[in-house]
Design a protein around this nucleic acid. Structure first.
Length: 427
RNA sequence: GUGGAUGUAGCUUAGUUGGUUAAAGCGCCAGAUUGUGGCUCUGGAGACCGUGGGUUCGAGUCCCAUCUUCCACCCCA
């Protein structure tokens, strides 16, 4: 197929039939966010490249090989956002949101871009719903953020999700732990795979989830971060777990969870599923107490999560979850002849003014074809206008499901008469 | 980035050991004694067989390249 009739690799059109599902999900996301007191923030699709290098981390895969980076005509290095947190933090700093009432609670739903090798549930343009909370250091905040995701899944009817949590400590505990890891893996230096040998220098924590069999085997005997947490971090983690317990949210502690974005501290978590093949993570997040300061702001504790919407939708479809039906056509106004068609056109307009989803014959075909069309679009009621109806000033309204007919007078009380007929169907 | 598959009308597919104008179902459009849907019947439109090369008298069917989608790794949402 020609390039102009083909969407770029890794992108997706959302067509009628699917867009209604997106809307249904988005409605739940917005409502849940509001229930928890979060406000929406919208940030640009592209930012200065440096923003992501600083926040996401120079050594991460995302920054090193997955960003859509280019130079604009002014010579600036621009990058399409690969995730949502950096932009939110930037906006938080740029507009002085830190001097508003704390905590600041924001949510967003945006497209993100990552140059990746395609797979189901892994696109180059994908959508993420996320929340960020600034200025809350307390463990209850961690539990609350996790519970937002949890209640979204619950409301959507998503099943079989596993919540895994871990604490990767603060920079102090992590320095000690990193040292311990280097020593441990150092003993097996020659047995490690090439990338792990590199990781050993740059980011030893990443060795832990290497899938190469031998590395994985070695990793099983590695020290656990949980044994290296200092007293504060340990107390914080315990309090987060207690808070989750009090909410009745089930979780498992997995000390191998190492998130791929450098800004995380202390609590990290993932919601995973086995129903999506290898793209198991539907939602991931954690605390990033150092990020705001790293970006030049006052030290501000913060945390949040990102949720992959394509994955969420895929998961819901895989689990056979029903979506609310699209709004159907309430009344199809058929017509025969030009005079009647003009009347149908006017009537459809008037009906819409009173909140009735009305449709008339927009293409000018025969009555039979019009009725077939009314049936296909799922019109709940139909009527046909012709010379006879115009002359008599009344017409028949037909219930498309039962075939039952009602007489209706073609005057200014039409909408009221229709409402009476319509509500009789509902009762 | 590594490895393995896939690609025929809008959709799902058939296409024999390469051979004349590439089939079917669904969908779409139009009809069935000229003003009415869902069933049935009839007809029609719609594919340069992903794209570009090559082999051959001749390729949807063989070879190469490229693109697309999918699977595993990797990464992450």
């Amino acid at each position: 197929m020609e390039l102009i009739t083909k969407a770029p690799k890794g992108t997706q059109d959302v067509l009628p039939g699917q867009s209604e599902k997106w809307q249904a999900i988005e409605k739940v996301l917005r409502e849940e966010a509001a229930l928890y007191g979060f406000s929406e923030v919208r940030t640009p699709v592209f930012e200065h490249t440096e923003l992501f290098q600083r926040s996401v981390g120079e050594t991460t895969d995302v920054v090193q090989k997955e960003m859509y980076t280019f130079q604009d005509k002014g010579g600036r290095s621009i990058t399409l956002r690969p995730e949502g947190t950096a932009g939110a933090v930037r906006a938080f700093l740029e507009h002085g949101l830190f001097s508003a009432a704390m905590p600041q609670k924001l949510w967003y739903e945006t497209s993100c871009y990552r140059y990746e090798k395609m797979q189901k549930g892994r696109l180059r343009e994908f959508h993420q719903f996320g929340v960020e909370m600034f200025g809350a250091a307390d463990p209850f905040a961690d539990a609350e953020v996790i519970s937002i995701a949890s209640s979204i899944f619950q409301r959507l009817g998503v099943k079989n999700l596993k919540l895994e949590i871990n604490s990767i400590g603060c920079p102090t505990c992590r320095a000690a732990y990193t040292q311990a890891l280097k020593e441990y893996f150092g003993q097996y230096h020659d047995e490690l795979c090439d990338t792990c040998r590199e990781r050993l220098e740059k980011n030893p924590m990443r060795l832990l989830d290497c899938k190469v069999p031998r590395c994985h085997e070695i990793g099983e005997g590695a020290p656990s971060i949980l044994d290296y947490l200092d007293d504060d971090c340990k107390a914080h983690f315990e309090a987060v777990k207690a808070a989750l317990d009090s909410l009745g949210i089930a979780y498992t502690v997995n000390d191998r969870i190492v998130r791929g974005l450098d800004y995380y501290t202390r609590t990290v978590f993932e919601f995973t599923t086995e129903d999506l093949g290898s793209q198991a993570t539907v939602c991931g997040g954690g605390r990033y107490d150092g990020l705001v300061a790293e970006m030049g702001g006052q030290p501000t504790p913060a945390l949040g999560f990102g949720m992959g919407l394509e994955r969420l939708l895929l998961l819901m479809e895989a689990q056979g979850i029903a979506f609310p039906p699209a709004r159907p056509c309430d009344l199809y106004i058929g017509s025969i002849g030009e005079a009647a068609r003009r009347k149908a056109f006017a009537l459809a307009g008037a009906m819409r003014q009173s909140g009735v989803a009305a449709t008339f014959d927009e293409v000018g075909r025969g009555v039979k074809a019009q009725m077939k069309y009314a049936d296909k679009i799922g019109a709940r009621f139909s009527m046909v206008l012709g010379d006879d109806e115009l002359a008599a000033g009344k017409a028949q309204i037909k219930n498309m499901q039962t075939g039952e007919k009602h007489e209706i007078v073609l005057d200014e009380t039409f909408a009221k008469q229709f409402a009476a007929i319509d509500s009789s169907l509902l009762s």
